[in-house]
Amino acid sequence: MNNLINGLHHITALASDAQKNVDFYVGVLGLRMVKKTINFDAPDVYHLYYGDETGSPGSILTFFPYAGLTRGRRGGGQLTYSAFSIPTASLSYWMDRLVQFGVPYSGPYQRFNETYLRFEDFDGMGVELVANSNDLRPGWDNGKIPAEYSIRGFYTATLNEFNIDRTVSLLTDVMQHKLIAEEQDLFRFEALNGGPGAYVDVMRSPKDVRALQGAGSVHHIAFATDSDESQLEIREQLWSAGYNPTGVLDRNYFHSIYYREPGGILFEIATNPPGFAVDETVAELGSALKLPEWYEPRRAKIEAELPVISALAK
């Protein structure tokens, strides 16, 4: 069988305020805004993409910031914690930085022989920083956070499930993941050769309340595939396994298919190409509002309705 899925591509969540969202993920966590565009299905709402210097697959956290959106509820049937990878030597730096910006955190904790911190953004979205020495991805110096301390990209994501059996079957039988570790009710799966950015953790949590979507909740998790051809191949396998993936949708920077996993979480398979430099140079990423060509005739109206935001690092 061809290798069809090679790890995480991006995670997309909901927020209640565009500027506060930028301030937290650019200003506090030091991610780069790699694309400022709109929700293709709701052009009066931004779609903000944060990641590493070049917007590499596996580093991208995106948001739809709906002004005044009611906060969601964390629980079963939801991606509850998005975990970023940091160098082992940077753990104390991040503890100090979170204190500096008034972000309460818990930990350090231990899990699968790794050390991590846990906290929330201003909307209550669950975030983790996992300290490890296995991530060879380069850091990015945003002018405030030195590259040697900076976030490398995703490490893993935690899916809370009332019953994990069918979700595990999807991951292992169709999506080419393998179980590599388990600890009480937490099970870790990896794609391809594993490593930071190729993990997904499944938590058996039958006593959870049912999650509610809103500000601070994850809308979907996207897994990466190398090409349009490999995407169509995994789409065919999903159909054969009884899932109902969408047709291929053009998101300008990748092509996407979507489907629900058995616990109700929205999954996406996204292509690695063409990438975020298709309409901006790497040096210019995130500096201008980018619209898909079918919205260009409405640019003036769209820009007038969107709030003005600044992406300056703190």
Rank of each mutant, 00 (worst) to 15 (best):
W140F: 13
Y155P: 07
S169R: 10
G76E: 01
N113T: 10
T172F: 14
P108C: 12
T80W: 00
L129E: 04
E114S: 10
E120C: 07
K144R: 14
D173I: 06
P138K: 11
S82T: 01
T156D: 12
G75R: 05
K178F: 13
L98G: 15
E120V: 09
D123N: 11
D121V: 06
Q176M: 00
L69D: 04
N134Q: 13
D121E: 11
V99R: 06
K144E: 12
G107S: 03
E148P: 12
D141Y: 11
D96H: 01
N134E: 02
R118C: 10
I180A: 09
Y149L: 06
Y149S: 02
N142Y: 07
G143V: 15
F154K: 05
D173S: 14
N134L: 02
T158H: 04
S92P: 05
F122V: 15
R111I: 02
G143F: 10
H177K: 01
F112L: 15
Q110W: 06
D165H: 08
Y155C: 05
N113F: 09
D123L: 04
G102P: 03
V127R: 00
N134A: 10
P108W: 02
P108F: 01
A89W: 00
F112D: 11
G143L: 11
L159A: 04
V103N: 07
V103W: 00
G77F: 12
G75W: 12
I180S: 01
R118V: 11
R111L: 11
L159W: 09
T167F: 10
D141N: 13
P138L: 04
E128S: 09
A89S: 05
L136W: 04
W140G: 02
G68W: 15
L136R: 15
R152I: 15
N113Q: 03
P108A: 05
R166T: 14
V168D: 01
Q110G: 03
T172M: 07
M175R: 13
S133K: 11
L136V: 02
G153A: 12
T172R: 07
L117A: 08
M95S: 07
Y116S: 09
M125Q: 07
N134G: 11
L129P: 02
T80V: 02
N132C: 15
